[in-house]
Write a protein that binds this DNA or RNA. Structure first.
Length: 367
DNA sequence: TAAACGTGGTG
DNA sequence: TCACCAAGTTT
């Protein structure tokens, strides 16, 4: 009998824990099917992993099911109008992911015969797939011995070895540790187990160390300070930006919408006309930036917090004549009853709900 | 390398 | 309330 190395014993401990605490998720193969050698569908794994970037499992579940119902295969997604994909993604955030999702599906359909590359390197060439996602898909869908490291894994590793160096600088060293621990057998389960452990046991605050399979080996716990890890670099303060948004309603019960440019913040998503979002309002005459002259009524202020700034928008509403025309580049009139089908990011739903409280079934959510 | 990039849940 | 932060990638 070969002597087990220390590294493989960590993997064995974790996999034993995983087999007892496996979570049912829509994109996972059930343990019974996995026992028969059935691997998860690469399309499902990829779609879920992209959605899960910086996003919680709870938020992703309904979106994943919706996408799978609308586009059962990667070739279906490749053939879909990009507007439909953006509308389906609306509310999930980080919209560059949706734009890249579409590009990636097209690349797989048109350049790879509808089949995902089965290596980390091949996957990483595709749009929207970086270090983490390429490793995750390679390990989970293709059984490759890839080192998968996300925020959960960083936390587990940093505590297990009490790594004092701050993130993100120590990432390469931590990734080397993960590579050392990743087993040749069941690398995909190992990766998912590490992430599950970080999500459910080795949590950022008040980790449940009593339930952790590593609690006899964790250096952070041995020093009685698991919450001190991972050490992170200080972040910058969040500035405030101001602006005004204009909800125009015509006699047909339609509102004026327009499409944002494809790049940058909320790229390719739908919005109502707004001023620029700047540190100061221009002389307080923000109504002069309205899309046209009308009897604009102030309805209130909405606040929305983005990753790197807080936005406060004065929301104006105006009732306009039915025959009002706008320039061809100024957007289109959309029935208020059809807003759910639009690619409206949450901040814009807040704006519209402020001006028209009955606009959405769940308008309360946007206050 | 550091900044840009959304949203919702949590303690 | 509010800072933190989540299965990161791109530029």
């Amino acid at each position: 009998m070969l002597q087990k190395t220390a590294s493989s014993s960590y993997a064995q401990m974790l996999l034993a824990w995983y087999d007892r605490h496996h979570r049912e998720l829509p994109w996972r193969t059930s343990p019974a099917m996995a026992a028969k050698g059935k691997r998860a569908d690469p399309y499902h794994v990829w779609l879920s992993e992209v959605m899960l970037q910086q996003t919680t499992v709870q938020a992703v579940k309904p979106y994943f099911l919706k996408f799978l119902a609308a586009w059962p295969s990667v070739t279906d997604l490749a053939a879909a109008p990009v507007e439909d994909v953006m509308a389906a993604w609306a509310g999930l955030g980080y919209y560059a992911r949706a734009r890249n999702l579409k590009k990636c599906a097209e690349a797989v359909a048109n350049e790879h015969g509808g089949v995902f590359p089965d290596t980390e390197e091949g996957l990483k060439q595709l749009p929207g797939i970086g270090d983490y996602t390429s490793a995750a898909v390679a390990a989970i869908a293709f059984n490759r011995q890839a080192a998968v490291m996300d925020g959960n894994v960083e936390r587990v590793i940093s505590r297990l070895f009490a790594i004092d160096a701050p993130l993100p600088g120590c990432k390469p060293a931590m990734k080397a540790k993960v590579a050392e621990l990743t087993p040749a057998d069941r690398p995909g389960d190992f990766a998912q187990a590490m992430m599950d452990l970080g999500a459910t046991i080795c949590t950022p605050k008040r980790p449940a160390c009593a339930l952790c399979p590593f609690n006899g080996h964790c250096l952070a716990l041995a020093h009685d300070e698991p919450e001190r890890f991972p050490v992170k670099a200080a972040k910058r303060a969040k500035p405030v930006r101001l602006g005004a948004a204009f909800v125009a309603v015509n006699a047909s019960g339609e509102i004026l919408l327009r499409r944002r440019i494809d790049s940058g913040l909320l790229g390719g998503m739908t919005e109502v006309p707004t001023t620029a979002w700047t540190a100061r309002l221009d002389g307080g005459t923000d109504q002069s930036h309205a899309p046209f002259v009308a009897d604009w009524q102030a309805t209130g202020v909405i606040v929305h917090v983005f990753t790197h700034f807080e936005l406060r928008l004065n929301v104006y509403r105006a009732q306009v004549p039915g025959g009002l025309q706008t320039g061809p580049d100024d957007g289109w009139w959309e029935p208020v009853t059809n807003l759910d089908a639009q690619a409206l990011p949450t901040v814009m739903k807040k704006v519209i709900a402020q001006a028209i409280p009955s606009a959405f079934n769940e308008s309360r959510k946007f206050r």
